[in-house]
């Protein structure tokens, strides 16, 4: 399988600030790479270079076999871009926006019009097709923006924080749409601050910090790398917490930690460990409220790799300012974010 996106030694400076520092990246054809990183890590700069909007100071990159600098114009016909700030025209209707984009891809007026209708139907926007975008909700605008990036059926798609600022329902709906696209064989580079999003959509994840890729792999590989599974339980009182810690100690692959009514024990044998843990707790006569085997969340992966969480406050100048060293805030959304195998 060949690579749809290859970047070698990409470097970009804005004044004294190095936004990208010899970044290397490959995305095999037909796969989804999730580019994770805090604000200022260089995600948006990477996308802007790969989509020909910004020239790198050093290094080279090809997308769909075309050089991002030398073949910029030809490349633009082969990629689609959908961003955090919906690049749509508020005064135009949904249909007019898509028709305009089609005409600027040189599909011709008639083909542009039929393509616009196809996409409006696919994105469930037929009812709103002839209304100006002013009256659209945030989720609808993102859908039109995403539809705009698909007008020319590009083999490579760039999604720059596609769901930032959306409510959970609109986000879930957009994820379904993207997952659907990906199953059609499109190569996607997705930047996101939401670990859940990368977990849900990406085949592989690259973690970016200070303009460099500091780790790549599948989400599972990254989770294994920072320390595998663990048993988590909630105990009814201080005595029970202490008893549970003692009971789990022989099973744990590292120190057992307690945090209030919460007990965490790192384990090595996955689901088997859970069965054994239940046996040990039962034998020790410890009553517990809730026991589960948990994988680390990508949030935790991120925290352990970079020393800060990914969901720092949104910053429109991503890529142009030094990374924010947000104080470590253990994953608030981690519980939802991960695949959990709860014992009942």
């Amino acid at each position: 399988m060949s690579d749809a996106i290859v970047a070698e030694g990409l470097t970009k400076r804005y004044g004294d600030h190095t936004a990208l520092d010899e970044l290397d990246l490959t995305v095999p054809e037909g796969t989804v790479l999730g580019l994770l990183g805090p604000n200022g890590a260089g995600k948006t700069t990477t996308v802007r270079i790969l989509t020909t909007l910004v020239r790198p100071d050093a290094g080279r990159a090809t997308v769909a076999g075309l050089d991002v600098v030398a073949d910029a114009r030809a490349l633009r016909a082969r990629i689609g871009v959908s961003g955090q700030y919906a690049a749509v025209d508020d005064d135009l209707t949904g249909a007019e926006n898509l028709e305009m984009i089609g005409r600027l891809y040189h599909l011709g007026r008639r083909r542009s019009r039929t393509r616009a209708r196809e996409l409006l139907e696919r994105f469930d926007l037929t009812a709103a097709a002839d209304r100006p975008l002013k009256g659209y909700s945030g989720g609808m605008r993102r859908r039109i923006d995403l539809a705009g990036s698909l007008v020319a059926e590009p083999p490579v798609l760039f999604l720059d924080e596609p769901t930032t600022g959306l409510d959970p329902r609109a986000r879930a709906a957009l994820w379904d749409t993207i997952a659907d696209l990906v199953s059609g064989g499109t190569t996607v580079l997705l930047t996101t601050q939401y670990m859940e999003e990368a977990d849900r959509l990406a085949d592989r994840v690259a973690v970016l910090d200070h303009g460099r890729v500091i780790e790549t792999g599948t989400a599972d590989e990254l989770k294994d790398r920072i320390g595998g599974d663990r048993i988590e339980l909630t105990a009814p009182g201080p005595g029970a917490v202490e008893a549970a810690c003692r009971a789990l100690a022989p099973l744990a692959s590292g120190p057992v930690r307690a945090d209030g009514a919460h007990v965490m024990a790192p384990v090595a044998e996955g689901a088997d460990s859970l069965a054994r843990a239940l046996g040990l707790l039962d034998a020790a006569g410890v009553a517990v409220r809730d026991v589960g085997l948990r994988r680390p969340t990508l949030d935790e992966v991120f925290l352990s790799l970079t020393g800060h969480t990914a969901d720092a406050p949104p910053n429109p100048d991503d890529g142009r300012e030094p990374a924010l060293a947000a104080p470590g805030r253990p994953s608030g959304r981690a519980g939802r974010a991960d695949r959990e195998e709860h014992a009942r």
Binding site: T51, L53, V81, G83, D90, G148
Partner: peptide, 17 residues
């Protein structure tokens, strides 16, 4: 001031358009 200009720049259209 609007995002639309980024869309235009990303399209294979004539820069003078």
């Amino acid at each position: 001031q609007k995002g639309i200009i980024d869309r235009f720049r990303g399209l294979p259209m004539a820069p003078s358009a």
